[in-house]
Amino acid sequence: MVKAEAVQKSFGRLEVLKGIDLEVSPKEVLCLIGPSGSGKSTFLRCINHLEKIDGGRLSVDGELVGYQQRGDKLYELRDAEVCRKRSEIGMVFQHFNLFPHMTALENLTEAPIRVKKESRTVAVERGRKLLERVGLGEKVNAYPRQLSGGQQQRVAIARALAMEPKLMLFDEPTSALDPELVGEVLDVMRGLAEDGMTMVVVTHEMGFAREVSDNLVFMDGGVIVEAGKPREILSSPQHERTRAFLSKVL
């Protein structure tokens, strides 16, 4: 589903990704862990082209992200193409980024109606079902500021699902939450994983990574230090850096 080969990215002179190779197969849940500044969020944002990569190849579902290859030449994609591809990838942000001027339901129906040109009835129907699914059936008409952090993040997940994505990206979805609200968001994500959604999750929740993810990647300094089965890495890390990081967070 996602394939990265020697992906490289710099902000000015700072090289944040120094050649990332990884692969995510359909229905797989991949967790990215690592200290802040290790490049894991940047890598995630490259997958839906919120950041442009400077080197290597990155493809989703067999198609290059942001570019098109014809012969041996790369062509930048037009805006409309980038938008179409993004609409197939859901993203959940650390700070929720719900639209504050819209109700929970309107947050869910906005993109399906405007981007996918769905009829209002269909979009509203699915929106209600999704809110029900994340346990917020009675918050349909609530505005984001009337919801707790955990509720907002669940609406944000539902909003991403409303576009019926083939891939979901989570950028530290529980980092901005009060500890007691983390569980409700993780439960929704766990359910999603069980339903077979392909997910790439940047997280600091080691418990979640251990139980839910199929593969775990530890990044530091813009490179992948270690990758493999979550239980193996978390219980017997091979690298010194992984060990040092885990000893601090576990």
């Binding site: 839906n48 938008c83 993203m91 639209f99 944000a156």
Partner: peptide, 14 residues
Amino acid sequence: EHGQTEAAQALGMN
């Protein structure tokens, strides 16, 4: 906030 633009872009809005 720029996050609003990013969230909208991530949904495929032009």
